[in-house]
């Protein structure tokens, strides 16, 4: 019996490896190997191909590099403001759309999901043309007397950050909302009935029943959004920077870590080792935040 068990275990084990092998192999070759290679690069200093081993020189360089500090600061601002705003909005929208009696439900859901289907470069061009000084958005805001001066979306550091946050929120809220909506539809509605009979108001039901049951999905969307925001690149590059001579937004207010890595690799004198070092700062930040988020949202069994 014991040997039969062992051979069954062996059978499962072989099958297990058989199923995961293609993925493990591909990730090993095309992700893990390059990751280790760039770790090795992070100990190299010098310009372009003329590199030598520099030990911890690149790590020292991080500490007296004002541009890096600014990029780290900007990235954290985007993370702290954008992720909660987007996820709250997504959760709120999902809970409104979870009502089966709502009319045009499918239509609204589709409309809100649509942005994340848009093409990246296309949407950057669209946003740029809508938010210029005397473009559509400003003339609308002034026309509706919401402001009396056009808002300097792309020329003022504060508003430039706001614009980037609006852009990412526009593109990804619907995407996260779908996850929440899916989770809400899995909740057994009879729990709500019981609490309604007990006289719990609707906001109470939301915070004390819905939110706790959504914890795994909240964790999932938080972690993926954190990763996305900390690696923020495409939007800034396509909306805020145009030529070699320009900063990433006014006063470099939209310079993120990923944009800085891109600059170090492609725009500035190529400093591949230092660029790799900065990218490991992102890895470290994501890891730290993910751990914190796991603890904060862990399921208390």
């Amino acid at each position: 019996m014991a040997s039969a068990n062992r051979s069954l275990n062996r059978y499962f084990n072989i099958n297990g490896w058989f199923f995961v092998a293609p993925a493990a192999l591909l990730i090993g070759v095309f992700m893990v190997y390059p990751i280790l290679y760039s770790l090795w690069m992070s100990f190299q200093t010098g310009k372009g191909m003329m590199t030598q081993f520099g030990g911890l020189a690149n790590i020292k360089r991080l500490f007296d590099d004002p541009m890096f500090v600014l990029a780290l600061y900007n990235t954290m601002i985007f993370f702290i403001v954008q992720v909660p705003v987007m996820l709250t909005l997504a959760l709120f929208l999902a809970s409104l759309l979870d009502n089966p009696n709502l009319k045009f439900r499918g239509l609204i859901r589709t409309a809100i999901f649509l942005p994340c289907v848009s093409s990246l470069v296309g949407y950057a061009v669209l946003f740029k043309s809508m938010f210029v000084q005397d473009g559509l958005i400003n003339s609308t805001l002034v026309g509706l007397h919401i402001t009396d001066q056009p808002i300097p979306w792309m020329t003022d550091p504060f508003w430039a950050r706001v614009l980037i946050i609006i852009a990412i929120t526009w593109r990804w809220t619907g995407y996260n909302m779908i996850f929440f909506l899916a989770a809400l539809q899995n909740i057994d509605k009879s729990i709500y009935e019981a609490s309604r009979i007990d006289g719990v108001p609707s906001w109470g039901r939301f915070f004390y029943l819905t939110v706790p049951m959504l914890k795994p999905v909240i964790l999932f969307t938080t972690v993926t959004s954190t990763i996305g925001t900390l690696q923020l690149f495409d939007e800034v590059r396509n909306i805020m920077t145009s030529d070699a001579g320009s900063a990433a937004g006014p006063s470099n207010s939209a310079l993120t870590l990923s944009v800085y890595i891109y600059n170090l690799t492609f725009k500035f004198v190529p400093s591949f080792g230092y660029a790799a070092t900065v990218s490991y700062v992102i890895v470290l930040a994501v890891a730290l935040l993910a751990i914190i988020q796991f603890y904060a949202l862990r399921e208390k069994d």
Binding site: T265, A275, I282
Partner: peptide, 8 residues
């Protein structure tokens, strides 16, 4: 591997 930015 999700944590590593592609640029690197």
């Amino acid at each position: 591997t999700l944590m590593v930015p592609f640029a690197a």
